[in-house]
Design a protein around this nucleic acid. Structure first.
Lengths: 228, 228
DNA sequence: TCCTGTCGTGACAATTACGTCACGACGAAC
DNA sequence: GTTCGTCGTGACGTAATTGTCACGACAGGA
């Protein structure tokens, strides 16, 4: 369940956001009314998303954002900035500092929800999960594992790198020399059966999905997203 | 050098975007004037970003976008949508379909540049590079390698997973049981020296940066972003 | 200071992964 | 059908990885 931190000193805005978020989907909410509190919460609780008003007492939103970006614990947390009226100055300044999105008050609740959902979807795909999903394949870059039709398949480091290289460009034929370079670091066009052997081992582990790795005779191999 | 695909049937808009992008940074540009051309280019050239006008002859932008999202080759390419005037209807529709950003004509060239830069930065962090960077450490999830102060350090699969677990939460102490679960999949609180041994091996490979892994006696280990 | 539990370290054996080879099967071109 | 080159496959030796253990060092509390 994603955690969202709302930073705003106006209670009715916090409430408006909270109500809309809670109604739409299941989120855990954190609230802060000033910059220091926000920074502390962000660094200890590590929310998945921060909605940050630019107008805050004492420490303004841009400063809070700068602080967030300077700490490795929070540098990757996406931020949606809020401001009264969409003043271009602040807008550009916010984007320049790496805000991930921007919302001008008064905003439409529907737009807020959509922006939150989009941002969470993007970051989940990457940072949190590091999952590459294609068809029935789900490759976990963190655990170095493959999930396939409910089964959890252990891959060796070489197999993982090979499958990753193939799966990252579905439908596209990769030449033998390219794969040898990507996975083994071979720079020359080496005559070796190593690649074939590992392809075979991969196909074995993929079981009935082994034919997702297609041989392109004389060229290389190709990953098919759909089993023919 | 990132490749950007511009899809718009108005030549002066394409030119405006091209001029501003080319002036600011080094990009490779592709241009398309209708949906079919855009889809073909996207699937064969695989640009890093697509700037897509909603108003196109024959196939409208939303349909193009839908097609992009349905093909594994293009599903991960971020899209900035362009529309005449920021009509809320289209805005919401675009975001709902997973557009990554939205720009209303007439737009400020500066804002365009910033949005492009932000989106590329976000996606590079994840998909393309899969690099986790903290201080002098640069962990490559695709190649399963560690770059540290110019050196390329080979890690075994176990070492990689262990370092990844630590480095993903810098400054935060991870309990032994958590690490055992994350890296080895042990569910019970097992009494083992395996973790210690691997920590030792990691520290050896990290050389003078070995003290970035701090022991928290009785609890676990902690990764420090800055060498003390 | 002593005691206790935790951690670091080096060595070791078992397991696993890896690359190579030989041979047979198969496709494509003629 | 024949020929040639590429690919699949099983086996095998080598190298690397891994988990465990024993012992000593050390920190923290009594």
């Amino acid at each position: 369940m994603p955690t969202i931190l709302i930073v705003d000193d106006e209670e009715d805005i916090r409430e408006l956001i909270a109500i809309n978020l809670l109604r739409e989907e299941k989120y855990t909410l954190l609230e802060a009314i000033n910059g220091l509190e926000a920074l502390h919460l962000a660094k200890t609780k590590r929310p998945d998303l921060i909605i940050l008003d630019l107008m805050l007492p004492e420490m303004d939103g841009l400063t809070v954002h700068k602080n967030l970006r300077e700490d490795p614990r929070t540098v990757n947390i996406p931020v949606i900035m809020l401001t009264a009226r969409g003043r271009l100055e602040e807008k550009i300044q916010g984007l320049e500092m790496g805000a991930d999105d921007y919302l001008a008050k008064p905003f439409s609740p529907k737009e807020l929800i959509l922006r939150v959902r989009n941002l969470l979807r993007r970051t989940n795909q990457n940072h949190g999960g590091s999952l590459i999903e294609t068809g029935p394949f789900s490759l976990d870059k963190n655990a170095l594992k493959l999930h396939l039709e409910g089964d959890e398949i252990e891959l060796t480091a070489t197999e993982f790198k090979l499958l990753l290289s193939l799966i990252e460009s579905p439908g596209i034929t990769q030449e033998r020399s390219d794969l040898l370079k990507k996975v083994w670091g071979y720079s020359d066009m080496i005559q070796t059966r190593t690649l074939d052997t590992h392809i075979k081992r991969l196909r074995e582990k993929l079981g009935s999905n082994g034919n997702s790795i297609e041989t392109v005779r004389g060229v290389g191999y190709r990953f098919l997203e759909e089993t023919v």
